[in-house]
Write a protein that binds this DNA or RNA. Structure first.
Lengths: 113, 113
DNA sequence: CGGTATCCTTCGCGATACTG
DNA sequence: CAGTATCGCGAAGGATACCG
């Protein structure tokens, strides 16, 4: 997701950061799965390719919404974390969305007959 | 924003609804401006075209995150509202984003020298 | 297993002109 | 003032192959 050079509105800024197709699901999975590896994430998120997953992870890393930790040795292993301050703020918002989504989805599916 | 035919995950569903480039800003402006007209929104949101604004409004209307009310007579006038139940849930989440955005934006701008 | 590079497709968004 | 129709572009994202 290409950001502008300048932002005046904080909401526009964060919206652009999180607009990517898989961003919120990735955040949610990292939170829910408690520090998963790359391959774990790829298993959990149906339909995403490794390239896209990494792209979106890197954007989240850039703004410190998540962190990455490599453990030494083989086989290679990496863990992704939600940051306590910034990342958890997103999770708070996502919890609201989660509940709202349940309501909307129920209506959506039942009107799709 | 083209939605899938089916969703299993509530979060993916609402994320897709709100992914549109101007969606959250539109929601925020309707809330902040208290039931603005179409032209009012277009003045407030810099850089959006009327066509896109209407497109995104219609998508928000479709899922009852906002409502529209036409007043009779000329000149034509329309007011957009945040719905008390669903719409306000989004606003709650956006308030969190708003605060977080302020923090991120400050860091972003100061590292852009 | 984690990560990068290339190429290709699609669709979201914008410009513009027009209608009631 | 509110809303629709048409057309075109660029960027987001997907497939695939390869590297440490």
């Amino acid at each position: 997701m290409k950001l502008r050079k300048e932002y005046t509105c904080p909401l526009e800024f964060i919206h652009d950061i999180l607009r990517g197709k898989w961003k919120t699901v990735i955040m949610w999975q990292i939170y829910y799965r408690k520090n998963p590896s790359l391959s774990q994430l790829q298993k959990d998120i149906k339909g995403i390719s490794q390239k896209i997953l990494l792209e979106q992870l890197n954007e989240l890393l850039e703004y410190k919404l998540i962190l990455k930790e490599k453990s030494l040795g083989y086989p290679l292993n990496v863990q992704y974390y939600i940051t306590d301050d910034k990342g958890m703020k997103v999770i708070e918002a996502l919890k609201i969305y989660q509940k709202l989504g349940e309501i909307l989805l129920e209506e959506f599916n039942s009107s799709n007959n």
